[in-house]
Design a protein around this nucleic acid. Structure first.
Lengths: 222, 222
DNA sequence: TAAAATTTTTAAGTAAGTCTTAAGAAAGGA
DNA sequence: TCCTTTCTTAAGACTTACTTAAAAATTTTA
């Protein structure tokens, strides 16, 4: 995660840089507004920390210009001024948050984390070797390439991956995926396992879906 | 936009309620933690205003419980305590922002708007391939040429573009665009998707609106 | 206020894709 | 080897989505 600090006081900016680097952020500093805007517009940053008052273009103006191009990137203002009016002005110009100087580094850190927190809900993602299954957007990737699965195929694979490393009995599978309880005499599972192996192009030497004879199947890392 | 206030002091909660209603928010009040959590979990709200200290379950605890279920809904803390430590604690428990009492109503309002911005607020511009959608002036351009869409068509396209890259389930679409909850058995979505594809002249080789069989649709760059 | 135009919804036929069954081939275990 | 279980394929049943037209509702116009 890359953060740009626009701040003219070296004391503050260096302090922040060090602190954020320790938190494994990648940090750049711009000491004046013109430089700051230019760097911001490069689009290289995931978050902007703007001082309210910097030489050259003001923080507010940077914010406004920047927002025209980048709608999503969060902006946090660092401001010595703590009158309500100006804070509002700042937020109206497109900032997401502001923090008053002097502030505790820990508080700033938390506010940064809040802004960077993943937006679209944490749908669970499962992995199996080179396969990634995302229940949120119903996508399966193999080596980053999208694999098109039908609903049944998807939910079968999901069931297996949720239970990675343990044997899935046929009865459990038929219950969870097909919602058939009590009795069953059908070969659907076999058919679908076959389809999965085919679509995922699982060769013998990378068959993540092992068959456990007489019991069922097991998804397993190699 | 519906807001839930969890606050035990009637003076504050009523003041807020009136102010927010004047800003055309729909506001409910819970006077204690248990009631608050219960109402919050109903899922009817777009934003939560939580007092730090309320009788019964604490604001922090409400926040934590609520986050388990609802990842997206913004939470703002109202707190009399202004020590840094506790603020951090609040943000860590899943809140998006906090404001210290006493506060100016105007500032609270701005913070609320900031939180609601990404969802439905502010006029924003979305792009999808050669298509540009501007919620501000309700315009859709394709290759710079204006496309005339009806209201429903527009809001369907807006919904898809806001969620570009992730699958939009039919239920979500029917909820967001048609405001139909719980049950539905109608083919409107299909009809409107068809209309969109037609009006946007999406050929097979540039169909930005993919159908995800059995699930819904997805706006996607090619 | 009625007529006209537009938008929204319903409905129905068609097309496309998915699911299940069934049956022969292959593989594993006794 | 024989029997059982699993694999593989293909055809038919079924489900879902597409497309069109027309009815219903809403908005605009005269």
């Amino acid at each position: 995660m890359r953060i740009l600090i626009v701040e003219d006081e070296p004391g503050i900016s260096n302090f922040l840089k060090q602190g954020l680097q320790e938190e494994s952020f990648s940090v750049d500093i711009a000491a004046d507004g013109n430089k700051g805007l230019q760097m911001a517009l490069s689009g290289d940053y995931d978050l902007l920390l703007l001082d309210w008052m910097v030489p050259g273009i003001s923080g507010i103006e940077i914010c406004r210009q920047f927002r025209k191009e980048f709608k999503e990137t969060p902006i946090i203002f660092l401001t010595a001024k703590d009158t309500v009016d100006e804070t509002i002005f700042g937020l109206q110009s497109g900032a997401n948050d502001y923090i008053k100087k002097p502030f505790h580094f820990e508080e700033l850190l938390e506010r940064i984390k809040v802004q960077l927190r993943p937006k679209s809900g944490e749908h669970s993602v499962f992995t199996l070797g080179s396969i990634t299954l995302n229940t949120g957007n119903h996508q399966v990737l193999k080596n980053g390439k999208e694999i098109n699965l039908t609903q049944k195929e998807f939910s079968l694979l999901e069931f297996l991956m949720r239970n990675k490393g343990t044997v899935c009995r046929r009865t459990r599978i038929i219950e969870s995926v097909w919602d058939i309880h009590f009795e069953y005499n059908t070969g659907v599972i076999d058919v679908y396992i076959n389809a999965l192996r085919k679509k995922l192009r699982l060769r013998d030497d990378e068959n993540y879906i092992q068959t456990v004879r007489g019991i069922g199947y097991m998804a397993k890392e190699l």
